[in-house]
Design a protein around this nucleic acid. Structure first.
Lengths: 207, 207
DNA sequence: GTCTATACAAAGATAGAC
DNA sequence: GTCTATCTTTGTATAGAC
């Protein structure tokens, strides 16, 4: 025991540091980096502004941390599946879609948040995440290349991600436009778990 | 003649008002609303801060105008096609994808910009644009409903938009990750003009 | 570790001269 | 219509008491 925890905090059940991070997650996700005021975060955490600078050095540092978590959540789910040596192409697609949709239903704002903020330092993040490796050297990509020798594998990655992620990126629009409640939207996404793999299979058979 | 133009301006070739708007388009698109400073816009226009408030009342009003243009560009292309009574489902899809990709290649940052900013007042925009009408009552939707009675038409709309728009939404990631130059990315998009309609046709045949 | 009070910088908006 | 100078608000960060 010991583990360098403090003495006074944890009045409720989590450390002050964690409360700030949780508040930061919420506010940053909701309003984006630029529109977020550190005061909002402090307030959301039921704490005081000065604490933010005590625990994290600045707004930017705090954001970095939150962003890394989010990016990890968004890409961490897929990397292992992409590189699995055992499974077939079809199995990978099925698992990918399933895992992704599950995760997205729990974090519907995630993709738009990450993609929105990412565009201000794309090189930076692409590098750290080794997106390049996944996009060029993953087992999935190899399998795609073999299956469809005349079509760039990126096309299928785009389709897979497009069909899976885009409904969440455009969710404000779809949900409002079509007048769907949350339950109805989720029901649609649940359907897509089974539909998308079928569609992709059909696409792979084209020509 | 007369038309209430001023006497002094137009030193180059466009009105001051238009120069401000053009600068605003650039800066807002690049940095987003919250991160944009009116000073940046003034500087980009080679003008002075005070002029912005002279012509437009505030940063927000100026943004509204730019945003409406962008949204119009993003949705204006598709509405007519969606509601065309003459064309078949397949023709509509083909035309939609073609027009959309053409437009997006000229405005690659458009979708991410609009989708990013839209999430702060989705109701507002969805209402103005009558997205609901297109999503529920358009001819395309009717045709989809007839063709696939047991699948919600929204699924296909999501797929269509996902495959077409998402590559641009994720462009920073794709382009950087895969190490593509602009030419190469455009070449891929050019291929997609022909591929997406085929894929969708294949999807329509599933089950 | 946590608070209050405040310094300091940035940014939107406006006044008033030309 | 256009400019310079300035007001005012807001937001990040810090000092210093407890």
């Amino acid at each position: 025991m010991g583990k360098k925890k403090s003495e006074k905090q944890e009045s409720k059940d989590v450390s002050t540091e964690e409360r700030i991070k949780e508040a930061a997650r919420q506010v940053f996700t909701k309003k984006g980096y630029a529109a977020t005021r550190t005061r909002d975060i402090a307030e959301a955490a039921g704490l005081n502004l000065a604490l933010l600078n005590y625990y994290f050095r600045s707004k930017e540092k705090l954001f970095e941390i939150v962003m890394m978590e989010k990016v990890q959540a968004l890409f961490g789910v897929i990397a292992p599946v992409l590189n699995d040596e055992e499974s077939s192409l079809e199995e990978k697609i099925e698992r990918l879609v399933h895992n992704y949709l599950d995760m997205l239903m729990k974090n519907p704002d995630l993709p738009l948040f990450v993609l929105s903020e990412i565009r201000y330092q794309p090189e930076d993040l692409a590098r750290r995440l080794q997106v390049g490796k996944l996009l060029r050297e993953s087992v999935l990509v190899k399998q795609l290349r073999e299956r469809k020798k005349n079509i760039h594998p990126l096309h299928f990655i785009m389709n897979l991600l497009g069909m899976t992620l885009f409904p969440f990126v455009g969710r404000p629009m779809f949900q409002h436009g079509a007048g769907l409640g949350q339950k109805e939207f989720e029901a649609l996404m649940e359907e897509r778990k089974k539909l998308i793999p079928k569609w992709i299979d059909a696409m792979l058979g084209v020509r």
